[in-house]
Structures are given as structure tokens and as C-alpha cells.
Simulated assay, not measured.
Amino acid sequence: MERLWTPAWIVRHVAMVVLVAGCLGMGWWQVTRAAGGNAISFGYAIEWPVFAGFVIFVWWREVRQTLRATPPGDAQPTADPAPSAAAGAEPAVTTPAVRRPVRVVRTPSAPADGADDAELAAYNRYLSWLNANPGARPGDYPG
């Protein structure tokens, strides 16, 4: 339970209470508007408590997930259900439940046949000319 009283979790608890109170308050406001003759407010009077229920559902799910996770200092060794037949085999490495993203550097590839694209080269010459002549219009291009 100590894991649920960190500063980050206190902010989550307060946010949940504020959001639920706000949604229920908005629902009550819609009930009073509906009682005053605004027919559309009947739908909103039902919708706001549903939003409050969703906030509670997400908060409860996060609490359960945090309580089920093992704390970093209490890592328990996992038992190998099927011991390996080889005497000197290395133990199986378990993969974590959440993996870190892998960043891949993408570089432009050269054409497969090695030839330059003539259309691309002409377009690059056109862009170079426009850059060299800032006051010129595209229609002034001599090429």
C-alpha cells in the first residue's frame, strides 16, 4: 500500500476525486436544466455520471496494476518449470512485460540500379535557381 502514497499517486488520487465530483456536479446541473424544460439535458444528465464511472474504472485499474507489480527491491526469483536437459545450459531469459522502443536511424537509400533520377536532378536545379534568385517568380525560370 505504500506504493499508492507516493507524490505521483497522491496527484492521481486528487485528480480522480476532482474529476468524479466535477462530473457528478455537471450531471446534477443537467438534471436541473432538464427539469426546467430543456429536453436535451436528459441525455447529458445520464452522460456525466457515465464519465464519472469511467474515471473511477481507470483509477481502480491503475491501482490494481500497481499493487500487482512487484516492487523493484523485492524481485523474486522465478522457478524454471521445465529444467533443461543439457548440464551446462544457460537459464532462459524472461522478457519484460513492457519493452523499451528501439530507435532506428533511417538513411536515404541510393537507387537500386545506381543511376540518378533525371527528374529529381532537374527539380533540384530548379530549387537551387529559386534560392539563388529570391525576387524571381517560378515562371521566370529559364530551364
Rank of each mutant, 00 (worst) to 15 (best):
Y126F: 15
V58T: 07
C23K: 09
T66H: 05
R100V: 07
R100Y: 04
G27L: 04
V58K: 09
S41Y: 01
T32M: 08
P91L: 01
T95E: 09
F54H: 08
A85R: 09
D117Q: 05
P108G: 00
G88L: 13
V63P: 00
A112E: 10
P111T: 00
N124R: 15
T94Q: 11
F51G: 13
W60L: 14
G36L: 01
P96L: 06
R106E: 14
I40S: 13
C23N: 12
R137I: 06
R99C: 13
R64V: 12
T78I: 03
R3K: 15
G73L: 07
E90P: 03
T70K: 15
C23D: 04
R33A: 13
S128L: 10
G143K: 04
A82F: 14
V63K: 01
T70M: 13
A92L: 07
I40Q: 14
P101Q: 01
V93Q: 12
A39W: 03
L67E: 05
T66M: 03
N124I: 07
F54R: 11
P96G: 09
A85K: 09
N133H: 14
N133Y: 03
Q30K: 15
N38L: 10
T78G: 03
G139I: 08
R12T: 07
E119P: 00
T70E: 14
W29Y: 11
Y126G: 11
W129M: 06
Y126W: 15
W48H: 08
T107D: 06
G37N: 02
W29K: 14
D116N: 12
A21Q: 09
D116A: 13
F42G: 05
P77H: 05
L120I: 06
S84W: 02
W60M: 08
A92P: 00
P49Y: 03
D74I: 00
A52D: 00
F54Q: 12
G114M: 03
D113C: 05
I10L: 14
L130W: 11
I56T: 14
A118R: 15
S128P: 00
S128D: 14
I10K: 15
W5Q: 08
T66C: 09
V58E: 10
A34G: 08
A21I: 04
P111Y: 00
T32P: 00
P134M: 04
V31C: 06
P72A: 03
D80K: 01
V18C: 08
V105I: 11
Y126V: 06
A15M: 13
M16C: 11
I10A: 10
P83R: 02
P108T: 00
A8V: 07
S41N: 10
M16S: 03
A136Q: 07
A86R: 12
W48Y: 06
E62N: 08
T107E: 09
V17D: 03
R100M: 10
T94C: 02
